[in-house]
Structures are given as C-alpha cells and as structure tokens.
Design a protein around this nucleic acid. Sequence first.
RNA 1: GCCGGUGUGAUGGAAUUGGUAGACGUAGUGGACUCAAAAUCCACCGCUGUGAAAGGCGUGCCGGUUCGAGUCCGGCCACCGGCACCA
Length: 812
Amino acid sequence: MRELKYEFSEIEKKWQAKWLEVKPFAASNQSDKPKFYGLIEFPYPSGEGLHVGHPRPFTAMDIICRKRRMQGYNVLFPIGYDAFGLPTENYAIKNHIHPKIVTHRNIARFRSQLQMLGYSFDWDREIDTTAPDYYKWTQWIFLQLYQKGLAYKATMPVNWCTSCKCVLANEEAVNGVCERCGAPVVRKEKSQWMLKITEYAQRLIDDLDDVDYIERVKIQQRNWIGRSTGAEVNFDTTAGDKLRIYTTRPDTLFGATYMVMSPEHEYLRRWADKLDNWDEVAAYMDAAARKSDFERSELNKEKTGVELKGVRAVNPVNQKEIPIFISDYVLASYGTGAIMAVPAHDTRDWEFATKFRLPIIEVVKGGAKSVQEEAFTDCETGVMTNSEFLNGLSVEDAKSAIVKYMEEQGLGESKVNYKLRDWVFSRQRYWGEPIPMVFCDTCGWVPVPEEQLPVLLPDVESYEPTDTGESPLSKMTDWVATTCPHCGGHARRETDTMPQWAGSSWYFLRYMDPDNGEALASKEALAYWSPVDWYNGGMEHTTLHLLYSRFWHKFLYDIGVVPTKEPYHKRTSHGMILGEGGEKMSKSRGNVVNPNDIVEQYGADTMRLHIMFIGDFEKAVSWSNEAVKGSKRFLDRVWNLGESCADSLEQTPANEAGIHKTIKKVTADIEELKFNTAIAAMMGLVNDFYANGCTKGDMKPLLLLLSPFAPHIAEELWELLGFAASEGAMACRQGWPVYDEGKTVEQEVTLAVQVGGKLKATVTVPMDSEQDTVVAAAMTDAKVAKLSEGMELVKIILVKNKLVNLIFKPKA
RNA sequence: GCCGGUGUGAUGGAAUUGGUAGACGUAGUGGACUCAAAAUCCACCGCUGUGAAAGGCGUGCCGGUUCGAGUCCGGCCACCGGCACCA
C-alpha cells in the first residue's frame, strides 16, 4: 500500500513547474519526426480573465496535441494574445490608464490562468499582436496589399456605430446594431481604406473543396460569399442612356413589365430635367438616404417607390415600352443597382406590382395558383410560355437560349455576382495598428517605406474618440506631421488604425518563427510547418476571422511569401458552454462560471476532464456545478487504484479485453472529437478494475490514456508507481498505448434472441458461433421454447455476435 | 422566407451508422462501514403492471419501408444558430 492522499493542488503546481523547467512541449523547427501543427484561436486578453468558454476548445486541442506527441510527432501547439481592441481602449479611457499597461496586466493574468490549467503550449513562442515587432509585419502585409492594388481608399457609405464612434465592417454590423456594443448603426459617408477581398471571392469558394473543414463551416462561407450566376442586360430608355440591369432569371425577360432603380442610382440626377415629377423623386431619394440599413430592411414590410414620369424603358426582346420606378428594395451596392421587374416570377416584384397595379404577365407556367394571385418562382418544374422562341423550353434551357441570343445580338451577357463586399479596413480608434500610409498634397497617398516599419503607435493624452469621426491620433499634430517619402514635402500620416481582425489574420505564421527580425517568418520555418494541420475555433468566426485570414493567406501565397494556398488543412468547431438553465452565460443572469473557482475546489484535472465529459464537443451544453463531482470522483477512484493496486507488472486476465477495447476506443474517439465517450470508456475500465482487482500492469495503459485529459494526476501516479524511474521519463514522453485487435474480443458473446422481431431473451454462445449453434442455444430458452410450440420455423436472421431473429408461423 | 442543426429517463448525455434503447455521469432509493455525519464501497434505478412474475407501452407528432427503425423514406410540430428586399 502506497499511502498518499490525492492532494491535487500540490500535485498540479509541482508538474506545472516541472513542465516550464524541462520544456517537454517545446517544438523544434528541425526534426526527423512527422510534424503536427495544432492551433486554437488565441484569446483576446479581456479584463475579466479566462471564462469557461475558453477551456473547452483549449483542452480539446491540448488533448489532441499531447496524444500526437506520444504518437511520435513533432508538435507545434502555440499560444498568444490578440490584444488590440476596443474593450481595452474603453477601459483605458474610463480609468485613465494607458492601454499598453492594461494589456500587459491582462496578458499576465491570462498566462497564469492558462498555466494553471496545465496546457502543453510551447511557451517560448508566445506572441502579442500589440508588440511593435509583431505589428511591424501586420503593417508590412498591408503595404504589400497596397502595392498590388488590393488596398485602396474610397469614400462610400459605411456602417457607423454611434456608440463606438467608429466604422464597422459589414460583418460587424448585425441587424442594424453594432456586434460589439449593441448600439444602433447608421450609414455615413466616409473615406476609408478598403481591402479587395472580392477579388478573391471565387478562389475562396473553389478552394474549400481542397480543405478538410466541417461541412457547416464550408456551407456558411459559401452562403456568405453568395455567388450567383445570371446575366446583365441593357435596356434602352427614352432618356437616351442604356439602363443596365442584373438578373439571375434572364429566362423571364419577356415577363418584365417595369423596371426599378435604387434611389442612389447615378442616372437619376442626370435625368432630373427630363423628369416631370423630379420633386417627388428627389424627396424619395432624400428619405432613403436618411434611413439606416436597419430601417430599410427590417421595418420595410410594405414596398414603397415612385414612378419616373417622363422616362421609360424598352424591353430589348419585344420592344415594349415599360415604366421605370425607384424603390429602396433595390440595393445600390449589388449588381448594377437596377433590376427588371418580373412580378409573375419574383415575390418582391409581385408585391410591388400588386401595390402599384402594374401588369403581371406569366412567362413560366406550372404554378399551383394563377400568377395574379401568387408569384411562381420555382425553377425546376416550370415550362416557358408567352416568350416567343423560348416557349416550351424548361427554365434551365431557356436561360442558356436567351443568354446566347442576347450575346449574339449585343443586348447583354452572362455575369457572375457575389454578395461579398470589400473589407472596410479603417477604424477611427487608438488601440490598433497604425495604417502605414502618408498623404502628400502633391503626391497623394504614399506608403511608408518598409525600412521605416513599424510605424509606432504614439502615446497620446486622451484615447477618447472624437465626435467628428476622426481617430484620437489626429490630435497628435507632432506625430501626424511628417515628410513625404516620395517628394520630401509636407505630408500627414494616416490617423486611422486597423481593425481587430488584422493581427489575427496571419498570427499562425508568426508562431512558426516568432523572433524573426528579417521577415514575418523564415522561408524554412514556413515550409516546414505550413499548413496548420488542425484548427479548432468558434462558429462565430466563420465569416469573419476565418474568411479574412484565408484571404490574406491566399494573397501571401500569390506574392510568394507562404508555400500553401490555404492556411488551415482541417477546421473543426466546438459548441458553446451555457449556464445551468441552458441559457447563455452572462453577468446580468449571474450564471457565469469562473474556471478559477472550479480549479480551486476540484483541481485543474477535474476541470479539464469535466469540460470534455459534459457532452458532445460540437454541440452547446449547459454547465452543471453539481455534476462536476462525478469527474472528481473518477479521479479519486483512479488515485485510490494507484495506491492499492498489486505490484505485478502482469495484466489481470479479466481486465485484458477491457484494456484493449478502451485503448481502441479512446484512440479513435479523440480523433473524432468524441471526448465524452472516450472518458466514459475510461470510467468503465476503472469500474472493471474495481470489480476484477488491478495490478500496476493494468494501471500502466490507463495512466497513458488518461494523461492527455488529466495530465497532472497521470504524471504523479506514473512516478509513484515507479514507471518514471524504471523508464526514465515522464508519462507525456511515453509512446501512445497500442491495442491488439485480437485481444479486444471476448471468448463468449451474449446475443439477443428475437421472435418475430421482438426481443424475448438473450443467449450466451462462443464467439463467432454459426447459425445452427445459435438457434439450438436459443431454443433451450424456456420462453422461446414456449413460443415455438406448435409452430414452424420459417426464417432465421442471424447477425453474427449480435442477434438472432426467429420467424415462426403456425404449423399447417 | 432561405440555409444549417437539434428533439431520447428526474437530469447531462450514449447507441459500433438498420440489429438487446438508456453506456458513462448527476440526482434518488436500499445496504455495508461509523457513536454519528461526511467520505468510501456494494446493489437498485424508463413508464405501466403484479405479492412476485407474465404482459403492455416507450426515442417530438402522423404515416410508410423492413424479419427488425432513435437510426432510412414521406408529411407535420417545436426549439436553437446563421443569413435575409443580393433580383
């Protein structure tokens, strides 16, 4: 008997100190072993510290990486901090502390919390996006984008958060409110740096075919990019200009009974003197401009619009004259900003036509109701009608036929459109990377020369955003005033900073070679580690960080900086941790669980184990303080086995099959993110050990299987049972246990016996018994025998080692 | 409206992908140990039924395929997430 209590607190401190000292998790940039790069989304170091949302994905990847090391891989599992951002800045404003100081404090806190949980990060590769030698390279990438024409300045209506006093990306404005603070978002004309992500739209779709992302991520990205194929068609107008429209249904061209332009369309002002009702039109344009996006979409149940009196369009295929309207249901920013309206086959056009009593002409037949009652929008079943040479064709055939005709006649051509918009890249805030551009009155925008990077973020007196919509940096006149790198004349620095997403768009590259002063990472390091083998992160980043970083990576690939087209080979995602009632955790509900409390009460191993045991990793689960005890109890039971097991290094025969089965299950389950059932299997094995008795030989594989999940207790018992002494190393440096398929099967199996498909009995027979043996054994069962009286056995279905189903019928 | 996902005991969740539904855990019940409690160990634990059995019912609802359906097909309902006047 080894009599030592499971003092988790001391044990965990001991091993954490040892890992920091011995560095068993340091990755090497040169190795004969196969490489594995496991990545988690680096945290934003908020003032609140780690919350329970963090340990779930972190522990999962830690388990995978610990297992990979034991399987003989050279593993890179790094950590860093995505530390630029608004919460830190807002805290700094409120408390008059420099954001730099706040950030350092928060990072220190995060670091100690992450170490407290025993993660096997390579701490020598820690990065911080706010460090000048890091953001130097963020700025460098921006300069490359600028040089290739992918960064440009444009004045355009942008999403403006009224509370943050800052521009938001499309992706950050959710339902008319700011994703971060919830304040209303309004439209504002501003001159902004933009990144041409749209240039990569098709490749961002196509290359999804070559990566191993979970399907819902691929689907969500494809939907977000929103590719559609259709045609652009020119309509003559009585004003003389050709009005160009985009449609995905060129087949319905004969059904176009009017046209609609967006209120922002450039022709409108040009046509002012031709319009009899210009006052009315101008009033509508004004009203539309004043509406926020939210008002334009959400509140717009009823369609509104104004007819242009004095200008009409001509349908190019039948020369019919049709009216033109303006309406805010047509968006200026998509397609050409104008549409042909086919009310018979588009619900929005139908609503508008009904309200304005415009003709509805059926050109596709097959709808359940008349098109006067309901638009028929189905493309699969319809047949063309009222469309001259298209009549009788299917919708698909009609599309190709009309496009071919239009291209021959010079009326229009096929066209692909995307919903994806260019990325608004400027923020009027302090705590971000300065955009390395200078404006010279004579030369215009001039990039800061690479050798002058980084453009350091200067210290300012106040971080308050200005009401004029300019960055706090604009008040730093000394810093703003500079000389033009081109002509040497007076120039002003760009005072906007980059968005939060900049630093995180390439951070995984920096981990490969974090101290490089010459490049964002060396060619060798990039060649060795690229791509990230497995990246796990939240679904909320699918159309933000994940898309942005794929875009940057493709660009870096194009200019020869990185060796792979895609940054991440595999992408998985975890579900959220909800509060006890299945509700979102929030301060206001008071159901927030602090990992520190759990670690203090039960230990880091219990915390890790429980967060993985709690339910399906990919789905949302609710936290239960009560249930944590079960995981702690399991570790106590393992500890007690370690104290009481027999000294023999032989395995107990009764445990053998269970051990091999468990190795098989845990090995496979980790790969499939089924941590909960892996843990259940280990619990089952421990229950067997209690029932059958156990030896050191039985404990050995159990401890190795447990070590990625609960590394501290595993190391301690490994040492205590003498394995470390006799084999000279920590558990984390052992080989991953292997199973013998032959030993996973039992000698005897219990089969279900069904009669007519209903379970009536079970019978135990030797493994792999043939049908005759099984049936004979089944018939010895009293219940089965009784059911077979006076019956004839007409059919036997045998599923080997599982079940036998006997079908009887009355004897004739 | 469109695109994903989910629905299983008191409860968190399992189920080798068509083969013994409820593994593993929590809560609960009974017992052992203890002066006692906690902890620990052992047993029971879907509903109904009975003295105990037998039997019947049971994976959101209705129908279908099959020797056999939580799993497949058709039609609904509810909840969660994403997108949303993108022509």
